[in-house]
């Protein structure tokens, strides 16, 4: 099992079609704060992608904030992968 050992963030808050994600060590579980400009239409699918990326890296304990501005699935997953890798680095 992998661990998030430091706070990290990725993404550009000024860019459309992007999302800003921050990650930090959790308090025993996954805590997700999610907001999106397309939450009503795609919120469930996006949260599923977020949890899928966490499980790929075996992350079970982290605090996440995702502020989405219309990122499509490969962009959201790229941002998740980058922030997880940054958070896992020593």
């Amino acid at each position: 099992m992998s661990k998030i050992i430091r706070a990290a963030s990725v993404g550009n808050e000024k860019q459309n079609a992007d999302c800003v994600i921050t990650i930090e060590p959790g308090n025993g579980g996954i805590e997700l704060d999610f907001t999106s400009t397309v939450e009503i239409q795609y919120g469930d699918a996006m949260k599923e992608a977020i949890f899928d990326e966490l499980s790929k890296y075996g992350i079970t304990d982290a605090k996440l904030t995702v502020v989405d501005r219309g990122a499509i699935d490969p962009v959201l997953r790229a941002r998740m992968e980058a922030v997880i890798k940054r958070g896992m680095e020593g």
Partner: peptide
């Protein structure tokens, strides 16, 4: 390459 919209 860092700009999702432009790459898309």
């Amino acid at each position: 390459a860092a700009n999702p919209k432009q790459v898309m």
